[in-house]
Every structure is written in structure tokens, then in C-alpha cells.
């Protein structure tokens, strides 16, 4: 194996700046996508636990659709197909006038994809609480909305902290797919450094270490949150 080592390439400009900006985009894509995933996923998860059949079916259709198409294909559908099938004015806006088109497409794609996973966790969390709490909430005169907001969701979220953590880390890792539509996030930048300098080993090592560091930091942080929010007497749903 012949290879010229040059670790200094990682701290030379412009490459150090590329890594920093790549990391910045990775964080920006993941966090924005996670916000969509969390709120949309919670709404769909709730829909799947209601008494209203139409809502349950709509929720199930959403989850099955977004779970059974590869994320990369979804990325292409959002980026290449959506602007063509929308009415002309909306399509033109997406193609020409929308600021940061690649970034926002990646965010929406990742967000809606992850929402399907979050929905399943939220549904599982609410179902774990059991019907007793639900009926009790209704019996003391709460409206269904109040029952969800004040009883079912607060307890449900506390049960699903571990799986939600792994879903967040999933978004963080999946944000690398944004490179396929041209977002220069961490993986794309380190690959570019590899191609420019022929120091692929060093640049991929940098990316790997950054991904590892973020994963372990988030996991350590969330483990503390998990112990603090744990409900006595209830086992939280293990991460899958």
C-alpha cells in the first residue's frame, strides 16, 4: 500500500474552512429537518391514535408512503419532479426564486421522511400509556384536545426519549444524502478535499471523527435528559 501521509492538509486553508462550512451545513440541515420531523411526526402520531377512522387511515397512508420509498428517491422526487408537476407559477418559484433551493429541498425531504418515524414512536408512546389514563382524562372533563396536550403527549414524550434520540441521530447521518442534490455538507466537503489533494484518508478521517463526536455528545446529553425525565415505575421504550 503506497500512500503519502499529510495530516497537515486538514489544518491548511482553504481545506480547514471547507470542513468547518461543511459541518455547519450538516448541522443546519439536520436541525431544521428535525423541527419539521418532530412537529409533523407528532401530529401524525396523534392522528393514528384518535377515535376518528379517517384520521387514522390518513396517518397510516402517510407513514407507509414515506417509509417504503428510499430516501434518495424521495430526495429526487422533491428536487426534480415536484417543480414540474406543480402549477407553472409555483414550479417556477421553486426553480428560480426560492432562496437556497438545494438546502430547503433537503430540509423538507429529510423532515417529512423522518416525520414518519417520529409518528411511529409517538404512537407507540401514547399506546404504552394505556387507555386508562385517556379515559381518566376525559372523565375529569378534559376535552380530547386537552387530554392529548396535558396528559397523553407529556407522558408519551417522556417514554420515547431514547427512540427519538436515535431518530435525531438518524436525521443527522441522513443529512449526508443532501450532497446528491448539491448541498456541500460535511461528507461532500471532505470528499472534495480528497479529490483536490489526494489526501482522502485524512479528510475522511476528519469527517468520521466529527460524526462520531457529535453522536457520542448527543447520546451522553440525551442519557441525562432521559434519567431526569424518566417516569417512576415506567420503563422507557428502548432505542431501536
Amino acid at each position: 500500500m503506497q500512500y503519502n501521509w499529510n495530516w497537515a492538509v486538514l489544518i491548511t486553508e482553504p481545506y480547514l474552512g471547507w470542513i468547518a462550512s461543511g459541518f455547519g451545513w450538516t448541522v443546519a440541515v439536520s436541525c431544521a429537518a428535525w423541527i419539521i420531523a418532530f412537529f409533523l411526526g407528532s401530529a401524525i402520531g396523534v392522528m393514528r391514535t384518535t377515535e376518528i377512522r379517517a384520521l387514522r387511515i390518513a396517518g397510516a397512508v402517510y407513514v407507509e408512503t414515506f417509509r417504503n420509498i428510499p430516501l434518495l428517491v424521495q430526495m429526487f422526487l422533491w428536487y426534480f419532479v415536484l417543480p414540474e408537476i406543480l402549477p407553472k407559477s409555483a414550479g417556477d418559484w421553486l426553480k428560480r426564486d426560492m432562496p437556497l433551493p438545494e438546502y430547503w429541498t433537503a430540509v423538507v425531504c429529510l423532515g417529512t421522511y423522518t416525520a414518519a418515524r417520529v409518528a411511529e414512536q409517538v404512537r407507540a408512546g401514547i399506546n404504552t400509556i394505556g387507555r386508562g389514563q385517556h379515559f381518566a382524562a376525559l372523565a375529569i372533563g378534559l376535552t380530547p384536545i386537552q387530554a392529548y396536550r396535558n396528559v397523553l403527549l407529556p407522558i408519551g414524550y417522556r417514554i420515547i426519549v431514547p427512540p427519538l434520540t436515535s431518530d435525531f441521530l438518524g436525521v443527522f447521518k441522513n443529512s449526508s444524502l443532501a450532497l446528491t442534490i448539491g448541498v456541500l455538507e460535511l461528507t461532500a466537503q471532505t470528499r472534495q478535499i480528497g479529490e483536490y489533494t489526494f489526501q482522502g484518508f485524512e479528510s475522511f478521517t476528519a469527517a468520521t471523527l466529527i460524526y462520531l463526536a457529535v453522536t457520542f455528545t448527543v447520546m451522553a446529553f440525551m442519557r441525562r435528559i432521559e434519567t431526569r425525565t424518566a417516569i417512576p415505575g415506567m420503563i422507557s421504550l428502548g432505542a431501536k
Binding site: 441522513n174 443529512s175 461528507t187 475522511f204 468520521t208 460524526y211 453522536t215
Partner: peptide
């Protein structure tokens, strides 16, 4: 833990780069 913390794309890039280097 190592592999589960990495994006699959990065793993693909790693091996696409490493395997020819190791095999020569």
C-alpha cells in the same frame, strides 16, 4: 458503535477509496 455513528454514504466513500489502495 463506530459503524452505527457513521452515515452510510461516508462508509461507501471510505471503502471506495480504501479497497483499491489496500489491494493495490
Amino acid at each position: 458503535n463506530f459503524f452505527r455513528s457513521m452515515p452510510l454514504i461516508l462508509v461507501i466513500f471510505w471503502f471506495y477509496f480504501l479497497v483499491p489502495l489496500v489491494v493495490g
